[in-house]
Deep mutational scan, measured.
Amino acid sequence: VDYIVEYDYDAQHDDELTIRKGDIIKNVKKLEEEGWLEGELNGKRGMFPDNFVKEIK
């Protein structure tokens, strides 16, 4: 499942992704941690907030 970024987010920890509006995040999975998703961007896998992105259908 792929998501498109709607709002910029700067990573706060090493396991998070810095994302920018218009980025496409690939292979996204829901995490047990409420409010977070995990996906791949530019060869890096990491977490990001689910309210900054929208699923591409």
Rank of each mutant, 00 (worst) to 15 (best):
V1Q: 15
V1E: 13
V1M: 12
V1I: 12
D2K: 08
D2I: 06
D2R: 04
D2F: 05
D2N: 10
D2W: 08
D2P: 04
Y3A: 08
Y3N: 03
Y3G: 04
I4T: 10
I4H: 08
I4W: 13
V5P: 02
V5A: 11
V5R: 00
V5M: 03
V5K: 00
V5T: 12
E6T: 09
E6N: 07
E6Y: 09
E6W: 08
E6M: 10
E6S: 09
E6L: 12
E6H: 13
E6V: 11
E6P: 03
Y7I: 14
Y7W: 08
Y7R: 12
Y7T: 15
Y7G: 09
D8V: 02
D8F: 03
D8T: 04
D8Q: 04
D8I: 02
D8E: 09
Y9F: 09
Y9Q: 02
Y9I: 02
Y9H: 07
D10S: 09
D10M: 12
D10G: 07
D10A: 15
A11I: 02
A11H: 04
A11Q: 14
A11F: 02
A11S: 08
A11V: 02
A11E: 11
A11T: 04
Q12A: 10
Q12L: 10
Q12T: 09
Q12Y: 13
Q12P: 03
H13S: 12
H13Y: 15
H13M: 15
H13Q: 13
H13G: 09
H13V: 14
H13E: 08
D14A: 12
D14S: 15
D14N: 15
D15A: 11
D15M: 09
D15G: 11
D15H: 11
D15Q: 10
E16W: 05
E16I: 02
E16S: 03
E16Y: 10
L17G: 00
L17V: 04
L17T: 02
L17N: 00
L17A: 01
T18W: 01
T18Y: 01
T18F: 02
T18A: 06
I19E: 00
I19R: 00
I19W: 00
I19K: 01
I19V: 07
I19M: 06
I19H: 01
R20Y: 02
R20Q: 11
R20P: 00
R20T: 09
R20S: 06
R20I: 08
R20V: 13
R20K: 08
K21D: 05
K21S: 11
K21Q: 13
K21M: 11
K21Y: 06
G22T: 03
G22S: 05
G22Y: 01
G22N: 15
G22P: 01
G22V: 01
G22A: 08
G22M: 03
G22R: 07
G22H: 15
D23I: 04
D23M: 10
D23K: 03
D23R: 02
D23P: 00
D23E: 14
I24Q: 04
I24K: 08
I24V: 08
I24F: 08
I24N: 06
I24R: 14
I24D: 02
I25P: 02
I25V: 14
I25D: 00
I25Y: 00
I25T: 02
I25A: 02
K26G: 12
K26E: 08
K26T: 15
K26H: 14
N27I: 05
N27A: 13
N27H: 15
N27F: 05
N27T: 10
N27R: 08
N27W: 02
V28M: 02
V28G: 13
V28S: 06
V28A: 12
V28F: 01
V28I: 08
K29I: 14
K29T: 14
K29P: 01
K29E: 15
K29Y: 12
K29F: 11
K29A: 14
K30I: 14
K30S: 10
K30M: 08
K30W: 09
L31F: 10
L31M: 14
L31R: 11
L31W: 10
L31S: 13
E32Y: 12
E32D: 15
E32K: 13
E32G: 13
E32R: 05
E33D: 13
E33A: 08
E33Y: 15
E33L: 14
E33N: 07
E33S: 12
E33Q: 14
E33H: 15
E34M: 14
E34I: 13
E34T: 12
E34P: 13
E34R: 15
E34F: 14
E34G: 12
E34L: 10
G35I: 03
G35N: 08
G35A: 04
G35Q: 04
G35M: 05
G35H: 13
G35D: 05
G35W: 04
G35P: 06
W36D: 01
W36S: 03
W36Y: 07
W36Q: 04
W36P: 02
L37F: 14
L37V: 09
L37R: 06
L37Y: 11
L37S: 13
E38H: 05
E38A: 07
E38T: 07
E38K: 07
E38Y: 04
E38I: 05
E38D: 13
E38F: 03
G39K: 00
G39Q: 00
G39M: 00
G39T: 01
G39W: 00
G39V: 01
G39F: 00
E40A: 10
E40W: 05
E40L: 09
E40V: 07
E40F: 06
E40D: 08
E40H: 05
E40I: 05
L41R: 09
L41Q: 03
L41D: 02
L41I: 11
L41S: 07
L41E: 02
L41K: 07
N42P: 03
N42E: 11
N42W: 03
N42Y: 04
N42Q: 15
N42T: 09
N42H: 13
N42I: 06
G43A: 08
G43D: 08
G43M: 12
K44T: 10
K44R: 11
K44I: 12
K44L: 11
K44G: 09
K44M: 14
R45T: 15
R45H: 09
R45D: 02
R45L: 07
R45P: 04
R45Y: 04
R45N: 09
G46Y: 00
G46D: 00
G46K: 03
G46I: 04
M47V: 10
M47S: 09
M47L: 12
M47G: 08
M47P: 10
M47I: 11
F48Q: 00
F48D: 01
F48M: 09
F48A: 03
F48T: 02
F48I: 11
F48W: 02
P49I: 06
P49R: 11
P49M: 09
P49F: 09
P49E: 04
P49Q: 11
P49Y: 05
P49L: 05
D50R: 10
D50M: 13
D50K: 13
D50Y: 06
N51L: 07
N51A: 06
N51H: 07
N51D: 06
N51W: 06
N51P: 06
N51I: 09
F52L: 06
F52P: 03
F52N: 04
F52T: 07
F52I: 13
F52A: 13
F52M: 11
F52H: 09
V53M: 04
V53W: 04
V53P: 04
V53D: 04
K54E: 07
K54T: 13
K54V: 15
K54D: 09
K54Q: 12
K54W: 02
K54R: 12
E55G: 06
E55H: 05
E55T: 07
E55D: 04
E55R: 06
E55P: 14
E55M: 05
I56T: 07
I56N: 07
I56W: 00
I56V: 10
I56L: 05
K57G: 09
K57M: 07
K57F: 03
K57R: 10
